[in-house]
């Protein structure tokens, strides 16, 4: 892997790959245009089914939910379910909370992980490899082990029932993202830094002015992964937030189920609304995103 990948355009490459294909246009056309589409559409059907089910159930009225076997398309689509779902829980408030948590986490991850990874990838210091081994080892700690101790820490800090326990740790790095960033930074030629050092630049300046601009795609990946994870995070807000005015959407979904009832169609309507922003984000940033992944992860 080289940095070259960063500039590799993701747009469809239409040029024929071999001379052979050029000689057999019809077969070549079939091979290039039809076969991949058939395979892709087949795969997509499997992956779209859950979405389809969610969206169509969201449109069904209560009586239709007790039809066996379930109807594939709502008999009388009722978009009003989306309105009911938004009213059933304090949706706008939960939405704002989700946005705050997601933005805070994404910013924290975007700042801390490149910084920390830089320290592991581009500076030599005694004990570095041992320390990096510890970073990797923390990946293996099952979260339930940490719950009680963490709660004590946050209690002492007076952070319970605030967004801080959910956001602040992101500013101290996450082993997965540190690893991803480090793999990327290792690939950048060391000469870039060396020449800057000779010019008398300090390490933070090198990081800031030279390395970070080159690492933007990888930073984007970290931010997007962290944002998606924060958007859907369930257990942490469940534990640390207490007042319902601070709940995010991921927790709000639980309110559609009660001890003896499930508002099934409303749950699906709300879930659809929860997913849409992330899906939009993915579509909008797909190109940038995929390039970013490519540079980071290849050299495992």
């Amino acid at each position: 892997m080289t940095v070259r990948t960063v500039e590799r355009p993701l747009a469809v490459e239409q040029r024929p790959r071999t001379g052979r294909r050029r000689q057999r246009p019809l077969a070549g056309l079939f091979q290039a245009a039809v076969t991949p589409r058939v395979i892709l559409i087949g795969m997509c059907v499997l992956y779209v089914v859950p979405f389809y089910w969610m969206a169509t159930t969201a449109l069904k009225d209560n009586p239709e939910l007790n039809i066996y076997p379930p109807t594939l398309w709502p008999q009388a689509p009722n978009p009003g379910n989306f309105v009911s779902a938004v009213r059933y829980i304090p949706f706008p408030q939960f939405f704002i909370n989700s946005v705050i948590l997601t933005a805070g986490t994404a910013i924290g991850a975007g700042i801390s992980n490149p910084l920390i990874a830089y320290g592991f990838a581009r500076i030599r210091w005694p004990g570095r490899d041992l320390m990096f081994a510890i970073v990797m080892a923390t990946i293996f700690v099952p979260f339930p082990v940490l719950i009680l101790g963490l709660f004590d820490v946050f209690t002492k800090l007076g952070w319970i029932d605030t967004f801080l326990p959910l956001i602040v740790p992101a500013f101290f790095g996450n082993p997965f993202y540190i690893f991803l960033m480090r793999q990327f930074l290792l690939q950048l030629p060391i000469e870039i830094s060396d020449s800057a050092r000779i010019d008398g630049a300090r390490e933070l300046q090198i990081f800031w002015h030279i390395i970070l601009p080159l690492a933007k795609p990888a930073v984007a990946v970290v931010i997007i992964f962290a944002a998606v994870a924060a958007w859907n995070e369930f257990l942490l807000p469940l534990i640390y937030l207490q007042d319902e005015s601070r709940y995010p959407l991921a927790i709000g979904l639980q309110f559609f189920r009660s001890q003896h009832n499930v508002q099934y169609n409303l749950l699906m309507a709300a879930s659809t609304l929860v997913v849409l922003p992330v899906l939009g984000l993915f579509l909008a940033f797909q190109k940038f995103f995929i390039e970013g992944v490519s540079v980071g992860a290849v050299k495992g």
Binding site: F151, T155, I160, L238, Q242
Partner: peptide, 12 residues
């Protein structure tokens, strides 16, 4: 009662 347990423990 995860939530209750942790909250009570944390004095909140």
């Amino acid at each position: 009662v995860t939530k209750l347990m942790t909250a009570v423990r944390g004095g909140s």
